[in-house]
Write a protein that binds this DNA or RNA. Structure first.
Lengths: 238, 238
DNA sequence: TCGTAGTTACGTACACCGTACGTAGTGCGC
DNA sequence: GCGCACTACGTACGGTGTACGTAACTACGA
């Protein structure tokens, strides 16, 4: 029987093919792809071991030959979509390169709306995560700073992107598990907010909603925040 | 029988005490406190309807008289701990005030490590969230900017705090659901990282880990990121 | 070459989850 | 004081992750 002891391991250190026994029916990439397909279509909550196994056409428990815990399935998923990051030869303009990186990350998260929820530094060791990080560092070669500082910049940038997309998707993803529509929910919340503001207890919020800047351009908001963060790290500024 | 139809509603708009019938055994605050107690002690995954009901000493299904869905229980929890935010008269130095706000938020999230996972703009309508936001805006009164811009600053700041604490807590919270210790897991991951770096495929990451800046001071890292974000929004800079 | 150990495959079973629904009892509004 | 909205809560259903046992299969050591 296989060793089922609770021994710490990273899934990437485990060989895809063991020496003995019949040859595995799937590769890790197949499993990750199936899980990603399900998550893209039905949301992260639709990703269950039974569901993924069914998508692959095998028994539920067979999955556990490839993935010791469901957590590891998540790790496979994050790595799989991290592989969609396009890389390029650094242009020499680190600011432009970082903006491109950030835009790409945002696009990726919009394509896979479950990604922000799974973003975690503990997944930063996967093969594609390492490639991505190395690429970011390469883009930052022109910057005069320690690698520690560069890592912080990359981390902060990724975090800001994750956060913005999380907020952009919040109501949409929430409505997936709700028995009524996103618009209905929003209307009710706005109505409640209005009633609270009308009480006069929140004068500045009232003023804020009086401003009425028209429809919000999420792309512009994102670009502005991005620019500000890059400004803050620009060594050529005060 | 009560109306069980799937009608959109905000829990805050529902009156605590209905006109008819026996008087409720609990207040919303009791329920929120019980859930927070459980989450603080056993992690967010320990918060189940059965568990919370047991903590309160009532039947599981009785909870649904107060909280239509589990999601709403989460909303109660976030509001409850948001009430722990201390408020003060703005000092006139908006930068100092925002730093204090950020530090307080970080402390709060360390006290309730499940908070970052529940942070969502859709919970921004709760009573205590509104009070918090109004207080932030009050601290920003000295700043010459539109309320829209101020809201963005507050949002970005909260997001950055959330993100940093999420990362700070990531391995600790993860180890809660793992059958081995955090240190063991870290050791295995670092070992794997070392083996990958030794391959020579990631020269910059190798260099980064050669730098060896000694033990990382998380507080200092946080403060630096915070300062940079505030710099980015400072109208007195370039 | 052959036995055997290690592997794959997977059905069954268990504990737990959110919650739909039915029923009984309570007390306010008419 | 009647009726009804509300509280309370037991039961039950369909889902979850996964421990464990068993059967089939293959590469290696003898």
């Amino acid at each position: 029987m296989a060793d089922r002891a609770a021994v710490p391991e990273v899934i990437w250190a485990r060989p895809e093919r063991a020496g003995r026994g019949p040859k595995p029916a799937f590769r890790r990439a197949d499993i990750a792809a199936a899980a990603v397909r399900i998550a893209d279509g039905g949301g992260l909550d639709a990703v269950s071991m039974r569901h993924v196994a069914a998508e692959l056409g095998c028994g539920t428990m067979s999955l556990y030959n490839y993935v010791p815990r469901k957590e590891d399935l998540y790790e496979l998923m994050v790595d799989a979509v991290s592989g969609e990051h396009e890389e390029w030869a650094p242009s020499g303009d680190w600011r432009a390169d970082m903006i491109r990186v950030a835009h790409q990350a945002r696009t990726l998260m919009h394509r896979h709306p479950w990604l922000p929820r799974l973003m975690s530094p503990v997944y930063g060791f996967s093969p594609n995560a390492l490639r991505y990080l190395e690429h970011c560092l390469a883009c930052l070669d022109p910057v005069e700073a320690t690698y520690g500082m560069k890592m912080q910049l990359v981390g902060l940038l990724n975090g800001v992107v994750t956060m913005y997309v999380t907020n952009e998707l919040a109501t949409a993803e929430r409505s997936r598990s709700l028995p009524w529509s996103e618009d209905q929910e929003n209307a009710v919340r706005i109505a409640y907010l209005g009633s609270q503001i009308a009480g006069g207890a929140y004068p500045r919020m009232a003023a804020a909603f009086m401003e009425d800047p028209g429809p919000i351009d999420l792309d512009a908001v994102f670009d502005m925040a991005l620019a500000k963060v890059l400004d803050a790290f620009d060594p050529e500024r005060g």
